[in-house]
Design a protein around this nucleic acid. Structure first.
Length: 270
DNA sequence: TACTCTGTTGAATA
DNA sequence: TTATTCAACAGAGT
């Protein structure tokens, strides 16, 4: 599930739930999500450390701990961050649990597509500072979006929007929402998004990202009823505008939903 | 019961 | 270099 707004929700959970130093660590040894982590070092260094900051960038999370320790989290498809009582007993999907005196910070991920990273040093780790500029940052300009679309030529615009190297945090439903608002057919080759449409697309990327955070991040809420979001999960989903049955197909390897009337194929529109 | 589907992504292949 | 396919995994839905 986690796209940028859900990721931000989970960041807040852990950030607000963290209280005091880590006194004990539970690790689900040998799990995929820990494949990049030196578990022994993580245990040793994080025990006695205290969370002092956190940041979300797209789908990536970084938690800064005292004594120069950094914990990265990617939630994959089914990951979540929970705060439980100190008496919490980890279940089989709880791969990393940081216990403080009063709480347990839980990283749970049944499908294990998520990932933890650990780094020790005074500056943020390279895998963090190398991430693409956030969608709401000044660096995310209409021009750089236009260039990126051109560069990806024939790739359907739907698939291009899912590339995290340029659109950090966009996931499947957000991409569909953005294209629907922009009245762009998801199969449109990226380099055929011309000037005016490109500008509109850029604006809607920013708007949907910002509004998603507004509606979802405070309490894992839902966007307003008129969003495509609410229609996409069912085969009977209708365009919120025309009440027409939505189209549904796999594009770029992902289930894609669109309205044939709002988003006609390129050849049949102006 | 068996089969299909899923919000991710990066490695392998073409 | 770039685009597509698939595997990693578990559970929910039909």
């Amino acid at each position: 599930m986690p796209e940028l707004a859900e990721v931000e929700f989970y960041r807040r959970q852990w950030h607000e739930g963290a209280a005091g130093v880590v006194v004990r660590i539970h690790v689900n040894e040998g799990q995929r999500v820990l494949r990049s982590v030196a578990v022994g070092e993580l245990r040793e260094r994080l025990t006695g450390a205290r969370m002092i900051d956190s940041e979300a960038r797209g789908k990536q999370l970084l938690f800064k701990f005292s004594k120069g320790n950094w914990l990265g989290v990617h939630l994959g498809m089914t990951g979540e961050l929970l705060v439980e009582a100190a008496s919490f007993e980890p279940t089989r999907h709880d791969h990393l649990v940081l216990f403080t005196k009063s709480r347990a910070l839980v990283f749970r991920d049944p499908r294990k597509f998520g990932r933890n990273l650990f780094y020790h040093g005074t500056e943020p780790p390279g895998w963090w500072s190398g991430l693409a500029p956030a969608i709401d940052s000044p660096e995310f300009t209409g021009r750089c979006v236009a260039e990126f679309l051109q560069r990806h030529g024939k790739l359907p615009v739907k698939a291009t929007l899912l590339l995290q190297e340029k659109f950090p945090g966009l996931g499947n439903w957000m991409a569909d929402e953005i294209l629907w608002r922009s009245r762009i057919n998801p199969r449109t080759p990226s380099n055929q998004i011309v000037t005016g449409k490109g500008r509109l697309l850029w604006k809607n990327i920013r708007d949907v990202a910002r509004e998603a955070i507004h509606w979802i991040s405070p309490a894992l809420g839902e966007p307003p009823a008129e969003w495509l979001f609410h229609q996409r999960w069912s085969r009977r989903g209708q365009c919120p505008i025309h009440k027409e049955l939505l189209q549904r197909d796999t594009i770029g390897g992902r289930t894609t939903v669109w309205c044939a009337r709002c988003q006609p194929a390129l050849s049949s529109r102006v």
